[in-house]
Amino acid sequence: MHVLVLNPGSSSLKYHVRDTSVPEAEASVQASGQVNWAPQARSDPSRLDEVFNVINAGLAKSTEAGHIEAIGHRVVHGGDQFRRPTRVTADVVAAVERLGALAPLHNPASAACMRTAGIRWPDVPQVAVFDTAFHASIPEYAARYAIPEDVYKAQRVKRYGFHGISVEMACRDAAGFLGVPGSSLNAVVAHVGNGASVTAVRGGMSVDTSMGMTPLEGLVMGTRSGDIDPSIVLLMQREGATPDEVDEILNHRSGMLALAGTADMRDVGAAVERGEPKASLALDIYAYRLAKYIAAYSMVVRRPDALVFTGGVGENSVAFRTKVLSWLLPLGLAMDQDRNLSPREGIRVVSADGSSFPVLVVPSDEERAIAEATASLLEEDTKDRRGRRR
């Protein structure tokens, strides 16, 4: 099936066309691109229409890509309502939009893209694939916050988790590489990019994750603070910051940007090599926070089959992986620097022989995951309809 995947972010809309009948990831890509957009474009139909004109022009360059059989959308927040890929309807679009308060940079853009895609390709089925869905299996004792019951019920304040599309595919690929059934995989999966999270996977299911009700909780990230004392928020507000200003500070002006002066790990790594103290401290904080979570989640999953690094930083930053593993020697993990430095593509082991469990680098491919989930749902629907007709 030829699936157009739309992945809207805060500053750009990525698109891919994938042929799900082709097993090789790279060979399945028929077209891809990225269209930068201003925040206004996500809510202005005429501007969003111009963005889709650019996508159409990109698709027109490939005969195969021009034949779209389905559209798959990455949606960051599905709340409690969406626990699996879902056919897009007007009600689904409205629900995704209502969840925008929990993912303001992403959900409104996803809803707008669904509407525009429905106008552009009215006869093409659309599927929403949710980042939060993989984490719906987190038990209540890990998902609940210790806050009053009325607040929890009124606002559904709980741990939802994110990066689920990437983590689920990393688990599937890691299980295949290790030769274990996906349904029995125990792993700690670190998706580390500009946004970062770590997930405890037991029996192939998410049982805890570092991100919470929103993507702000957990690890230090490119521009997000991650875990902080909640009193810091109160302090900023008492000093005159509005809720919107606090949100701007913690989501867009914190993290590695605040610590090192840049959110780009390539620049941080270069600064560390130059001997800049701020960059070295930033990398130490970044790696230490992740190592703490990995150690805790190794206990949660009991007997890990693997520690998995995925995401742009997790896959590409040799220095970062080395720093993290240096903290995890008590777990019996040691880095093999020759393997760690190897530029080999695909899944690979970077830990030393004799480690208590392997450390893997698994390339992230959210677009492939979304395309496959879209095709699978639509094929199931087709089989169900045929069965009912009989």
Rank of each mutant, 00 (worst) to 15 (best):
A94D: 14
D227F: 06
Y141D: 12
P215C: 08
G176E: 13
K292N: 10
N36F: 11
G275A: 14
L378G: 04
A154P: 03
V350H: 04
A291V: 02
H67K: 15
H135R: 07
V93F: 09
P23H: 06
P139D: 03
R238K: 15
P304C: 12
S210C: 15
S32T: 10
V17E: 00
R156Y: 09
A65E: 04
A334C: 15
A319P: 07
D227R: 07
R386W: 10
Q34S: 14
V233A: 04
P330Y: 15
D244A: 14
M256A: 08
V324K: 01
K383D: 06
I347P: 00
L102T: 05
R253I: 01
T374P: 04
D284G: 11
I249P: 02
A187D: 04
D229P: 02
G332P: 08
M256W: 01
A111Y: 09
V151Y: 06
L99E: 12
V362A: 00
R156N: 07
G161N: 08
P215R: 04
D353I: 09
S110K: 06
I138T: 10
A41F: 07
P363L: 10
D336P: 05
W37K: 08
M213H: 10
V17P: 00
V127Y: 11
Q34A: 15
H163D: 12
N56V: 12
A371K: 01
